[in-house]
Amino acid sequence: MSVKASLNTLKKMNEKMYPKLSADERSAMVIKTFVNNDEVQREKLVKSCPMVNYSESDHAYTVRIEASRDIVTVFIIQLLEYDKFISIMKILKGLDYKEQGFNVIKFVNEVQAFLLAFETFCEEHVGIASRDMIQAWYGYDERYIKMMEKINNFIDIYESNPDEELKGIWLKKVFLNTWKNRVKVR
């Protein structure tokens, strides 16, 4: 349908037609009003949309569930990134990392701080173990739990002391900041 035909269709509509539009028709027409820069028609379409009352679970509960799922998803994405990097390091084990300008201990400290921050977040702020949090959102597929064990084994090889400052940064700036913004905790 051409822009001119769309404009004519919208202009021919009368007040009785607006409430009868289906959700598909109404949304398509509203999008066309943006294209045509027709604020008057857009307002008529929006204001004539039937109003419906819904019941839902407690909002505070719902946002906490959604936020926990999203935080675990971000955690898993970062975990996959670290796992990939560790796998590459193992493949290139024969190379001298210092010669390549790579600080292994700094990397190990970062990964360790990330894992500890997630663990602290789960236990102290959500009230469940990090392992349970992962399984809650990623089922009983042990892949991510095994990946964490593999990464922890890698960290143990370097016998690094946890970097509490870096852990605090991960905890505060990533996990707690996201949690507080989503659930509006003060």
Rank of each mutant, 00 (worst) to 15 (best):
S2V: 06
K4H: 07
N8V: 10
N8A: 15
T9F: 03
T9C: 01
T9S: 10
K12N: 10
K12M: 14
M13R: 02
N14C: 09
E15M: 02
K16T: 12
M17I: 04
M17D: 14
Y18H: 07
Y18C: 06
D24G: 04
E25H: 04
E25R: 06
K32G: 00
K32M: 14
T33Q: 07
T33S: 03
F34I: 05
N36M: 15
N36P: 00
E43R: 07
L45G: 03
V46L: 13
V46M: 13
K47Q: 12
K47A: 01
C49V: 00
V52L: 03
V52Y: 00
E56S: 15
D58G: 02
D58A: 06
D58Q: 11
H59P: 04
A67F: 03
S68F: 05
S68P: 01
S68G: 03
S68N: 10
R69M: 12
V72D: 05
T73R: 09
T73Y: 05
V74F: 13
I76D: 01
Q78E: 15
Q78K: 15
L79G: 04
L80N: 14
D83M: 06
K84Y: 09
K84V: 01
I86V: 15
I86S: 04
M89L: 15
M89P: 00
I91E: 12
L92T: 11
G94H: 10
G94F: 13
L95A: 06
D96N: 15
G101L: 03
G101A: 09
F102S: 06
I105T: 14
I105S: 15
F107H: 10
V108R: 03
V108Y: 08
V108W: 14
N109S: 15
N109D: 11
V111C: 08
V111Q: 04
Q112L: 03
Q112M: 06
A113Q: 09
L116M: 11
L116Y: 13
F118R: 02
F121N: 04
E123S: 08
A129H: 12
A129S: 14
A129D: 13
M133P: 02
M133T: 04
I134Q: 00
A136M: 14
G139T: 04
Y140W: 02
Y140A: 07
Y140T: 10
D141R: 00
D141H: 01
Y144E: 05
M147V: 10
M147I: 12
I151C: 03
F154T: 05
F154G: 01
P162D: 02
E164Q: 12
E164T: 07
L166Y: 12
L166T: 09
K167G: 05
I169P: 00
W170T: 01
L171Y: 06
K172E: 11
K172N: 15
K173V: 10
V174Y: 09
V174S: 11
N177K: 12
K180I: 04
K180M: 05
N181K: 12
R182G: 00
R182I: 01
V183E: 01
V183L: 07
